[in-house]
Computed example of a mutant assay.
Amino acid sequence: MRQGARPEGGRDSGGAGRSWRDDRDQRQGRGPRSDREREPLPPGLARAEDEPPVPQDADPSRLPREVRAELRSLSPEGAEFVSKHLVAAGDLVDTDPALALRHAQAAKRRGSRLPLVREALAETAYAADEYAIALNEYRALRRMTGDSAYLPVMADCERALGRPEEALRLVKEAKLVDMTQRTRVELVIIEAGAREDLKQAKEGLRILKVALGHAGRDIPHEAHARLAYSYAAMLLRNGQEEAAREWFVTADGLDVARELDAEDQIELLDGVDFVFDFDDEDESDEDESDEDESDEDEDSEPSVDDEPADEDGEDHDQPHEDDTEGLTPEVVTSEVVPEGQEALLNEAGEADDSAEAEEKERND
Results as ranks from 00 to 15, higher is better:
residue 153 V to K: 12
residue 302 P to G: 07
residue 41 L to S: 07
residue 155 A to Y: 02
residue 51 E to N: 12
residue 231 Y to L: 02
residue 82 V to H: 03
residue 173 E to F: 06
residue 261 D to G: 13
residue 27 R to D: 06
residue 43 P to M: 11
residue 33 R to G: 04
residue 300 S to D: 09
residue 77 E to C: 04
residue 141 L to A: 06
residue 293 E to F: 09
residue 160 A to W: 00
residue 351 A to M: 08
residue 265 Q to Y: 05
residue 198 L to W: 00
residue 225 A to G: 09
residue 40 P to R: 09
residue 178 D to E: 08
residue 119 E to M: 13
residue 95 T to F: 04
residue 336 V to S: 00
residue 190 I to L: 05
residue 283 E to F: 06
residue 191 E to M: 03
residue 226 R to G: 13
residue 271 G to S: 11
residue 250 T to Y: 01
residue 163 R to S: 14
residue 137 E to M: 07
residue 272 V to A: 12
residue 194 A to F: 05
residue 286 E to I: 03
residue 324 T to F: 01
residue 173 E to P: 04
residue 93 V to S: 03
residue 39 E to K: 14
residue 119 E to G: 06
residue 56 Q to W: 03
residue 263 E to V: 09
residue 233 A to D: 12
residue 198 L to M: 07
residue 224 H to E: 11
residue 348 A to F: 03
residue 39 E to I: 14
residue 343 A to F: 03
residue 196 E to S: 14
residue 43 P to A: 15
residue 35 D to A: 15
residue 232 A to H: 02
residue 17 G to N: 03
residue 293 E to Y: 07
residue 91 D to Y: 06
residue 318 Q to M: 10
residue 228 A to W: 00
residue 326 G to Q: 04
residue 327 L to K: 08
residue 149 A to G: 15
residue 180 T to S: 13
residue 236 L to R: 10
residue 313 G to H: 02
residue 272 V to I: 05
residue 274 F to L: 15
residue 121 L to W: 03
residue 66 E to C: 11
residue 149 A to K: 02
residue 155 A to I: 04
residue 105 Q to Y: 05
residue 248 F to I: 08
residue 227 L to T: 08
residue 223 A to Y: 00
residue 225 A to I: 04
residue 200 Q to F: 03
residue 185 V to P: 05
residue 351 A to R: 06
residue 182 R to F: 02
residue 280 D to A: 14
residue 169 R to Y: 08
residue 56 Q to P: 09
residue 250 T to G: 08
residue 158 E to H: 13
residue 115 P to S: 09
residue 218 D to S: 15
residue 203 E to W: 00
residue 330 E to I: 09
